[in-house]
Amino acid sequence: MNAQVSELVANDVTLATNEDGYLLDPLDWTPEVAIELARRDGLELTEDHWRILNFMRDYYEEHLIAADARFVIKYLATEGGYGRNARAELYRLFPYGYMQQTCKIAGMRRPRAWSTG
């Protein structure tokens, strides 16, 4: 279900997204793309957002998959210094959820559908 049904213009470049607005190719991502995706969600990216997005991009470059939420939370807990409040911090910055918002703005492909059972 990764057919392009929509597109995104950032920095005068037009990129393909799926119907939910996720990039089809994570390698298309640039900081300008993130700013545009965040704008669509009504978010203004601050330094705190960028710290998470950069971590996720680094993770993607190394592993070629999106980081699990638990790894981002762990990073915030340790290197970010948030300890037990790391998850609350993640949701303060991206209140509609990691898969729904953080992954999208970080340029990940849409994660596979929820396991619902």
């Binding site: 279900m1 119907e19 939910d20 939420a69 949701y91 209140p95 509609y96 959820g97 990691y98 898969m99 729904q100 999208k104 849409r110 559908a113 929820w114 619902t116």
Partner: peptide, 16 residues
């Protein structure tokens, strides 16, 4: 039926 990504404010799950 196909899935998608919808959530409510402050929650990461619970909506299918």
């Amino acid at each position: 039926w196909k899935g998608g990504t919808i959530s409510v404010y402050g929650y990461g799950g619970g909506v299918i």
